[in-house]
Structures are given as C-alpha cells and as structure tokens.
Design a protein around this nucleic acid. Structure first.
Lengths: 191, 191
DNA sequence: AAAATACTGGAACAATCATTCCGAAAAGAG
DNA sequence: CTCTTTTCGGAATGATTGTTCCAGTATTTT
C-alpha cells in the first residue's frame, strides 16, 4: 500500500554515534547530527524521538561494539595473555585515527550533570562489569599459579580498571599509542 | 578621588573555578557563574573580559593549587615514599566531598574541540610536566637502588601518569576512595 | 559639597539551541 | 492511475545562550 520501509536505520545511528563520540552530548548540535546522518529533521524526530533518546541509543550501540573486547577477558585461558589481548584491542580502539579519540563512555561521564540520569547509570554499569571481568580473570590466574598467591586481586583489578580509564584520557592528549602499548607490556610483567 | 578598589577579585575567581570544575566549560552558563560569584554582570565583564578568559584564569588558578602536590615528587628523598605522598594528596583532592569530584583539567580535555586552543595547550603541558616529575623521581630511585635496575623507568612513569588520569575518572563514578587508596598501596609495592 | 570612580540592575541584542508543524515530493501497492 | 505512506525542506516557536549598554546608586577623595 505504501512506500517501502525507511533508510538504513542502523547505519544512520552509527553516524550519529560517531558525532556524539567526537563532540560529546552538549557539544553536538542537531545541525551537526543531521548533516552527519544525512536525513531530514522530520525523519530524525520521527525515528529517534529526541536528542536524548538518540544519544541513549548511540551509547548503547557503542557499548555493544566495545563489549567485544571483554570476551578476551572472559574466555582467556591465561590471565596475562587475556589481559594483554584486551589492552591491545583497547589501545587500538582508543587511539585509532579513523574514529574519534578516546572512549565515548569516558568522554560522557564528565559531561552529564545528574548522577541519577539514565545515561550515567549506563556508564557506571559498563565499568562495574569491566572491573568484575578483570577480577574474575585475575582470580583464575591466581588459582592456576600464573599469578603469585600473595597478590591482592581486588587491588590489581582496580588498578587495571584505572589504567583502562587513564588510557582513554591519554588518547585525548594524543601522546601516541606507542607509549601506552609499551607501558601495558611492562605492567603485565609485574603482575 | 574615587571609590576604593574592588570586591575580592581572588575570592570571586575561586568561586567561578568551582563552578567550572563541577559543570565543565559548556555546561556552565553565565547565570550559574554570576550567582556563584555574587557580583553583577557588568562587574564580571569589566573584571574578567569574557567567559573564555574567565575560564582560562580559573584553570590557571586550579593548576597552581594542584601543582603543590608535585612538590612531593620533586623534593622526595625516597621515590616510593614521594609517590605515596603524591597519590595520597591526589586521591584526597579528587574524591573529597567539599569540592567537585575529579579534576578540572581532566574534565575539560574531553570538552574543548580544537587541540590548538590555548586551553588545551595548557592541559597538555600540565600532564607533560607531571610525567616528567614521575620519570625523574623514578630514575633517582633506581640510582639509589630503591628500584630494581632492570625496571623500565619510562614505562613505569607512564603507568603512574595513566593511573593519575584514571583516578580522576573514577572519582566521577564515585566508587569511594577506599579502593583507590588500597590500589595505590599495592602498586607502590610492585615498583 | 563636589567630583570621580566602583558597582548594580535590568533592558536589549543577536545568535543558537531543540523541537514542532505543515505542505509538497517521492515511491511502492492495489 | 490512485491510494497510502515515507521522506523532505523550510518556516515558526520558545527557550537559552553570551554579550553590550546605560541609567542609577554607592562610596571615597579632594
């Protein structure tokens, strides 16, 4: 009876995500979004309701992509090797030239005011899960003897989580990824 | 011939700094600033020229206060003890309840678009100097035998700098300072 | 008292923001 | 061709933004 469905919703959302990633929530205007998404104002509001709702969807998309890295932690046989592979991916994602620098989630934490905001809850969950993944893997590594028994697993996991945050900040400063890669190599050697 | 000087310029600037610290550059409106500073629009523009100029001054003030921590690195006799004292101060400043969470400088890096902006140059310098302070102290620690000779000083310094960044992000997530303090203790034990 | 300066309050401005609405063009289905 | 639905582009709205300007009120010194 009518015209076929829509444009490519997923693709358009992806474009929006890149803009949010680069400029943050307040920093991106609707004009920026529409230009990048390549659809009309009307279509955008029809499809995504709101700027806030669009951001929420974009953040969730980012998170899905980003969560793939965590598989290296969950499925690793060796703790150190799993951590190495995770950070290799993490550094690559944070420093690569064809996407914005840093991490959309980290970039946002700062920006949103209310800690009760749905967005902020999403961020907190994101990092709690990452911290848990580090902890579980380190624990397994300790049980298998790969990591010394006297190590404080809780502290090491929190250290890795903190380094994870720090890399996202460092990427914004653009000091070059080489230093980060070398640093992670040394950190793993100390575990 | 005339009325005496002004209100307390330094005090008013301090108030403005707290607002920028909490809400970021874009996030704070002139209304917010004026309410916190307690002076009139006219006086504000007369005294500080611009929002941008005001922010720049506020950031420099923050940086001066923040730089006092670095003295613990520059003047330390023991490397580990100096690093311990630095991070004790750093965590306290980042997590304390009577000032905004995190670090004004870190909170800003994300926000400003152009890397050529005077503000962004300020930020970069800030962290380069901190990285140098870590490196010099670690080197002295290695020469005095406090730190093993086979350690890669460059990597360790970059790790501490990255952890420094990460703490500022973690403070925004408000996971409680206890975990950060415990983590630093463990990290220093591993140096 | 008079003159000079410091500060205030509010009005006015132009720009930008997210959002809503409407009419027209486009495109598949009957 | 004729519906029906999707998409578009632009105009309009109302709120908020940073900034300028001016008249008026303090406050101090000559």
């Amino acid at each position: 009876m009518a015209r076929t469905k829509e444009f490519d919703r997923a693709q358009v959302l992806h474009k929006a995500m890149l803009v949010f990633w680069e400029k943050g929530y307040d920093g991106t205007s609707m004009a920026d979004l529409l230009e990048a998404m390549g659809i009309s104002r009307s279509s955008m509001y029809e499809t995504f309701t709101d700027k806030h709702a669009l951001y929420l969807e974009a953040a969730q998309l980012y998170r899905r992509n980003s969560q793939e890295k965590r598989r290296f932690l969950l499925e690793a046989e060796s703790a150190k090797e799993g951590i190495r592979q995770y950070f290799e991916r993490h550094i690559d994602g944070s420093f690569r030239e064809d996407t914005p620098m840093g991490c959309l989630v980290t970039n946002t934490i700062v920006n949103v005011d209310s800690p009760e905001d749905e967005i902020n809850v999403l961020m907190r969950t994101h990092f709690e899960e990452l911290g848990t993944a580090f902890r579980e893997l380190l624990k397994r590594g300790q049980e298998s003897g790969e990591i010394a028994a006297d190590r404080n697993i809780e502290d090491l996991a929190y250290m890795l989580l903190t380094i994870n945050h720090g890399i996202n900040v460092a990427a914004k400063l653009n000091n070059g990824r080489g230093r980060a890669e070398s640093m992670i190599h040394t950190v793993i050697g100390m575990l």
